[in-house]
Simulated assay, not measured.
Amino acid sequence: MTRRTDTGRRRFLGGLIAAGVIPRPTWADAGSPAYLAAGGRPDGSYLLCGIGADLSVRFELPLPARGHAAAAHPSRPQAVAFARRPGTFALVIDCASGRILSTLASPEGRHFYGHGAYSQAGDLLYTTENDFTTGTGRIGVWDVTAGYVRVGEIASGGIGPHDIRRLPGSDTLVVANGGIDTHPDSGRAKLNIPTMAPNLTYIEAERIVEQAALPKALHKNSIRHLAVGPQGEVALGMQWQGEEPVDALVGLHRRGSEITLFDAPAEAVDRMQGYIGSVACSADGATIAVTSPRGGMVQFYDTATMALTRSEALEDVCGIAPAAQGFTVTTGTGTLRCLRDTAGARASAALMWDNHLVAL
């Protein structure tokens, strides 16, 4: 179900088409959403939704299975909806018409990890993948202008690449290699915890140009999700695979330096239950916000002091993205909420929101 524009706009577009001038659709044609999120209904059906800055649902498009995250084209109203890992398909959807433009299938011996990123011009799509025959990470390369045809793949620089982002104003990619080996025959089982080695990998022109790793004592801290600040700083959320307590689950990286971990009291780290579900950076880069659905908690960190500043409890919270003021979050219980310093606007929907909220 999509919500269409008014009659005057349709007449205007019709006049352009009659004159032989066909405008390229933009996100305004899909209701000008501020976010994308996957969700599920109580009847077991699944959807990709566009959400406005006012927390209204601008469109609802059906998905054949549970989604994880989406990648939004930088200018056209197109989104790639990825299946929950270890998925082998992704759908390219025209969010203005609701039409499925293409179905991406991972090559034999690969599975997707649920995330992707477009190039700056939107002519290429990059997908995080697992080569489960060798246990190594790959980045699939798809030609958007040719109809999302796969044209190659490159090394991710590690094992288990999960999230991938593009640095602002460039085609430099940063990949979260979580370090965990998986295989479809084993479902979501983690096969190499004793030897895992997560890292951040930067890729330019399909070449690895920089890598950053955690201290050896934290090699079981799987780097899973990323957010990129306005100056290209990379915030990382981690998921602890060890049995003993961990000191930090959130970090920050600036190119040319080591990964720096944010400071928080031990009890605050414990509340996250070893699991960061999503991470977001404020528009000015001053605040990093992270969620834990297991802990039912949102935490806020100051990038100047590298310290925890605030926590807020919210049941089954996971999706998070920056808002004009504060951050917008989604929960598995159906809540959409804008979290601010003093109060929060709240809305509910008859949807159980999945892992991620993608800002447009």
Rank of each mutant, 00 (worst) to 15 (best):
R9S: 06
R224P: 09
N355C: 05
A81I: 03
V250C: 08
P107F: 00
P64V: 11
G39Y: 08
A264M: 04
G67Y: 00
P230G: 11
S348M: 13
R66F: 05
A81P: 08
R255A: 15
F59Q: 03
G67C: 08
L252K: 02
R166H: 01
D143N: 13
A28R: 11
A323I: 12
G187S: 10
A349R: 02
A264R: 00
L91R: 03
A117I: 09
Q78F: 10
T195E: 12
S311W: 01
G274V: 13
W142V: 15
T103P: 04
T201L: 12
T287F: 02
Y275L: 14
R207M: 05
A146H: 01
A34M: 12
V358M: 12
A146Y: 00
T88W: 04
G20Y: 06
W142M: 12
A90V: 09
Y301T: 02
I93D: 04
T2M: 13
W353H: 05
L125C: 14
D185S: 13
H356I: 11
I154R: 06
T134I: 10
R10N: 07
M297P: 02
I203D: 02
T303N: 12
L236C: 02
V358I: 14
G160D: 04
P42S: 15
S282Q: 05
A359E: 05
C95D: 00
G242W: 03
W240H: 15
A18H: 07
W353N: 03
Y275E: 12
G274A: 08
V57M: 04
A212L: 10
P322T: 03
Y113W: 08
S257W: 06
T260A: 13
N199E: 04
Y46T: 14
W240S: 13
G122E: 06
H219C: 11
G122R: 07
L16H: 04
S282K: 07
R254H: 07
P33C: 11
D181C: 01
H68K: 09
T291R: 03
G179Y: 02
S119C: 10
G296W: 06
D341Q: 05
L351I: 13
H162K: 04
P198A: 14
T127L: 13
R310P: 01
A65S: 12
I93E: 01
C338Q: 14
S45L: 13
A121G: 10
G8W: 01
G319L: 12
N192E: 09
A81N: 02
R58T: 08
P62Y: 10
P230C: 09
A289H: 02
C318R: 14
D54H: 01
